[in-house]
Amino acid sequence: MGEGGHAVIFADALAWLLDAANWTGPKSIPVRVGVHLLYCLGAVLGAAAIAVPLGLFVGHTGRGGVVLVGGSNALRALPTLGLVTFLYLVAGGGTSGVLIGLVVLAIPPILAGTYAGIQDVDRGVVDAARGMGMTGAQRLWRVEVPNALPLLLGGLRNATLQVVATASVAAYVGIETLGRPLLDGLRVLDYGQFVGGAILIALLAVLLDVLLAVLGRLVVPTGLRVSARTARGPSRRRRRVEPVLVDSGGSTA
């Protein structure tokens, strides 16, 4: 297809996006965006509720690291559409099977980010906290977790982007997500509708990624952010982020 054909498709996509008929009714763009967001939010929160505690436990204790990495890689290899469709059929229809499938697919990046974040904490800082008389739980929540936040939040961002794209396949089982314009466009060869749906998914992914980046700036300790910027400086001599020790008052040192 030449440049002229591409221009026509993008013009059709813009026309579809600007068509007022697509912005009203039970199958409108706002409704589908809302449904898509609900599935994404439910999947990421459900995956975080499973993956974050598990990653913290394995990273803190050092037990089961090999099993965790192997299991995470196995989950990454699962076919998205096949898994969602299978769980949908096993659940007897409805939304629960689709949501479970999305949760399963969102677990690996969150699990990997949490585990890697805890493992990346400087053992010297952990030993110093132990020498100060901190218990295991205190070391975890006041030393390891604050230092692991950048990688942990990175895992959440990766999982969110993956789920935003993956939730589109829910349209295959009749759920009105943003995947519906993709399916409808392919069925009737309406490439303007197809590209318009893809643009909406991409914009939603970018918006959520920006929001999570802002959240990261709010919750990551200032010392970690400053050290990270220093490590990315022109000299690039110090590439490792310096760990931060958090005292009981929540300040950083």
Rank of each mutant, 00 (worst) to 15 (best):
L152I: 14
A43T: 04
V84C: 04
G192R: 01
V195S: 00
E3S: 12
I9M: 13
V126F: 00
G101P: 02
R217N: 13
G70K: 06
G131V: 14
V98Q: 01
Y39Q: 00
E3Q: 10
A231G: 13
V69Y: 11
T252G: 13
G62T: 08
L14A: 15
A15R: 15
G64R: 10
L178V: 09
G196P: 07
D122K: 07
G70S: 09
G136K: 10
V169L: 05
V121T: 15
L161R: 10
V219N: 08
V103E: 03
L224Y: 02
L81H: 06
T230C: 01
V67W: 15
L186D: 05
P53L: 08
R123H: 13
P26K: 02
T160D: 01
T222S: 10
V220P: 02
I110E: 03
L83Y: 09
L215G: 12
W23D: 06
G2I: 04
I175N: 02
M132N: 08
T61K: 12
V173P: 04
R130H: 09
A112L: 12
A213M: 06
L41P: 01
I110C: 05
V69F: 03
R237D: 12
L89Y: 15
G113L: 04
L208M: 14
G179F: 04
L89G: 03
V121I: 11
C40T: 15
L189N: 13
G82F: 10
G62P: 04
A148Y: 06
F194D: 01
R123M: 07
P146I: 04
A7V: 15
P53R: 09
V143M: 05
D190Q: 09
R142M: 14
L153K: 03
F86I: 11
G65W: 02
V69M: 14
R225V: 12
L152S: 05
T24L: 08
G55H: 07
Q138K: 12
L102S: 00
N22W: 05
G4V: 12
V35H: 00
Q162G: 13
L161I: 15
G233I: 02
Y191A: 09
V121E: 08
P146V: 03
S28R: 09
G101I: 04
A137P: 00
W141N: 03
T252I: 10
R76F: 15
G4M: 14
G55E: 04
G174T: 11
A74M: 15
